[in-house]
């Protein structure tokens, strides 16, 4: 019995230490990012350890500089953010439009090739994105979609569809099929069942699927790099930030402001939908 109580006491202390350490480790880099975005670059270079600026040294000039267009002496992040928003909204809308009917079919209908479709989606993850990106880029160039936001949207849809189908399908599988059957007896067609019954019932999961693909598209880097490097007016925030960070001419604190602008929309969306998103992703995981 003694060892039980000793262990319990040690573990109770250890647990608090672990939680505190993990929270600090996850939060500190983001706090550092936020603080540096308000610091003047010469203050950072002079005193890198004094991270917290005194009140009179706080500046918002970094944000003005990073957001302003090139003509106004800035780096055009306002436009990058618009590009990212267009791509992410386009990708998430298109993903939902494709995934809802497909998930419905995969849970409700028995058709030729059903199981093969599921395997196809799994196989996608075996290959590095880099080997997919190059032929897609060459193919899109031929079709005239190479250096365009439309091409990027199509590529992102393909990247997010497999996980989105998985999330939505797990949810739909939990809705009793007898509801569909009751509607059939009332004379509803397949389309009516889908639009009037399945979609409203699955709305929370559909929203979290949309958010998931928005976040993937907003954060993505490699495709943007290959597709849009040459076209500065089409850069997304991720691409713009890395391109500007590669050179020496832009000060790091200005780029920190850029990082904050890149991160904040994702954190807000995640804050709104954390519950739905994590439950959607882990659906089925607790069943072993």
């Amino acid at each position: 019995m003694r060892s039980v109580s000793v262990q319990s006491r040690v573990l109770r202390v250890l647990r608090v230490v672990v939680i505190a350490a993990l929270v600090v480790a996850t939060v500190v880099p983001f706090v550092y990012m936020l603080i540096l975005s308000f610091v003047r670059i010469d203050d950072l270079l002079r005193e890198p350890l004094h991270v917290l600026p005194t009140l009179d040294r706080i500046t918002t000039e970094t944000y003005r500089e990073v957001l302003a267009s090139e003509e106004d002496g800035g780096y055009g992040f306002a436009r990058f953010m618009r590009n990212s928003a267009i791509v992410a909204i386009g990708a998430s809308a298109l993903t939902v439009a494709l995934v809802v009917p497909a998930s419905y079919a995969l849970t409700r209908l028995r058709f030729a090739g059903r199981s093969q479709v599921s395997w196809l989606f799994l196989a996608v993850y075996l290959f590095p994105t880099i080997i997919i990106a190059v032929p897609v880029f060459v193919g899109f160039q031929v079709l005239g979609l190479g250096s365009s936001l439309v091409g990027l949207v199509i590529a992102y849809v393909a990247l997010t569809v497999p996980v989105s189908v998985h999330m939505l399908r797990n949810y739909l599988a939990g809705i009793p099929e007898s509801i569909d059957e009751a509607a059939v007896i009332d004379g509803a067609s397949r389309l009516q069942i889908m639009t009037r019954i399945t979609v409203p019932l699955a709305m929370p999961t559909i929203m979290s699927t949309a958010l998931y693909s928005f976040m993937i598209a907003w954060n993505e880097f490699l495709f943007a790099l290959l597709f849009l490097s040459a076209k500065q007016d089409l850069w997304t925030v991720s691409l713009g930030l890395t391109r500007l960070a590669d050179g020496q001419e832009v000060s790091k604190t200005v780029l920190m402001a850029g990082s904050v602008l890149l991160t904040v929309p994702i954190v807000i969306l995640y804050g709104v939908a954390e519950r739905a998103l994590t439950e959607g992703l882990t659906a089925g995981a607790d069943k072993g």
């Binding site: 929270v23 996850t26 939060v27 954060n219 880097f221 925030v237 930030l241 920190m256 990082s259 954190v267």
Partner: peptide
Amino acid sequence: VMLLPYVAPVVATTFV
């Protein structure tokens, strides 16, 4: 909060 490193944009976190 613990999930932030996973959801935050990789470009921003690597830069920090």
